[in-house]
Amino acid sequence: MTRDMVLRVVAKLLIPFILLFALYVQFHGDFGPGGGFQAGVILAAAMVFYAIVFGLDNARKVLPDRLVETMVAAGVLLYLGVGVAGPLLGGNFLDYFVLAADPVAGQHRGIFWIELGVAITVCGVMLKVYYLFAGRGPEDD
């Protein structure tokens, strides 16, 4: 954890806005620039910022390793689940038209869940990689 008070205060002020921006990018991706890939990376960047300022151990308390590793796989599984929902509802694999009564609403639903899956996996992988690199510690020989 850094002892620099300016950094810690600024981090506390900024991180909520970074998280909010990530959510905006995620859910406004249909109407403006953004989507799951960007939102996942911004979310991970907010956590990396937190880990740099407040220390890796505190970041691990917020998002434990186990949860991050689950996120890595859960996103892909969510994506695949949306894909498999198509055949179960009488369509093709990754067919969103059958997800709701109205085809356009079905497309909306499919895109929403898929973007969420992408964001979860991307965020999980980026965070896990950062944890692994930062937790290894420098060579001390």
Partner: peptide, 9 residues
């Protein structure tokens, strides 16, 4: 077809 104005998405 998709109801999404951002064609990239």
């Amino acid at each position: 077809e998709t109801g999404v104005p951002n064609v990239v998405t």
